[in-house]
Write a protein that binds this DNA or RNA. Structure first.
Ligand SMILES: [Zn+2]
Ligand SMILES: [Zn+2]
Ligand SMILES: [Zn+2]
Ligand SMILES: [Zn+2]
Lengths: 139, 139
DNA sequence: GAGACATAGGTGATGTTATTACATTCGTCA
DNA sequence: TGACGAATGTAATAACATCACCTATGTCTC
């Protein structure tokens, strides 16, 4: 799998990228592209493409993750750090909708090993776990 | 995580379920719902909902898997067996589009363990690996 | 067989997510 | 200044998924 993301400081984002970044930063839960669009209409954004372009860049920098099973986006929990791991997995609570990012190196190793065993050149992995978070089990 | 799928023989499918099942069976690559619809118009299917309903049932029986990162569907490689594991992971070749199902118990254990460590009650997991299959690396 | 129930099917309209195509603007550097 | 690449703006459209409503079919009971 490819290496970590380096040196993509959130300071030198473009206007649209910064708008999307801060909208995600302010959200407890993942946001869809059209949620972001609605949230940012007041800032002058009008078209889905403006959101998707910003998201693509932010994802490329490793600042944002896409959750495939939700068609939604979250900030990387390492986005303030110099070097960000690229082995993220996520738990997604089906009751409250909250998402938690995990970065487990033994999982990354196991996936790499599984891929290698079948001759597959792994570039990127998607791991999304659905269930109930601790809080929602108690409730 | 929940248990395996049992006793869902492909023989007692309804007409629409059987049509979708056999369309997937005949495909090397995953098919989208609208691909299936186009393939089955000649058999009298006209609306997306007919496809989605059949897919939902087939997925419930463990005969079909949904690939979240492709919005597409594949037959389970264990669909001829009595008991089907529910710990599937997939490799997806970004060059040729072919998908391979893996069922690795140590991966399932590790995911269960990761979830448990954070108090998360795991119900279902999505693992999709992107990269190049052996054939496409050679080419 | 009539009635009740659960599962499956048919159809049109609508909702949600993502991309294409094309023109314009901005930043950087020679 | 002019050239170039990156980013932006906008409209239209494509791709994926569900809602609402109604009909048909099978099964079980009386
Ligand atoms: Zn991250
Ligand atoms: Zn929860
Ligand atoms: Zn399977
Ligand atoms: Zn390939």
């Amino acid at each position: 799998m490819s290496g970590e993301h380096r040196h993509a400081e959130p300071d030198k984002l473009t206007k649209n990228q910064a708008l999307v970044f801060h909208a995600l930063e302010g959200s407890e839960k993942p946001l869809g592209a059209y949620d972001l669009l609605d949230a940012l209409r007041g800032d002058g954004l009008r078209s889905p493409l403006q959101i998707y372009r910003a998201l693509d860049k932010l994802i490329g920098m490793g600042l944002v993750h896409r959750l495939e099973s939700l068609n939604a986006f979250v900030l990387c929990i390492h986005c303030g750090e110099e070097v960000r791991p690229d082995n993220a997995a996520f738990t997604i609570c089906t009751a409250c909708g909250r998402v938690t990012e995990l970065n487990d190196s033994s999982l990354a190793r196991l996936l790499a090993q599984l891929a290698e065993a079948t001759g597959f050149a792994l570039e990127q992995s998607t791991v999304e776990l659905r269930g109930l978070c601790a809080a929602c089990q108690a409730a």
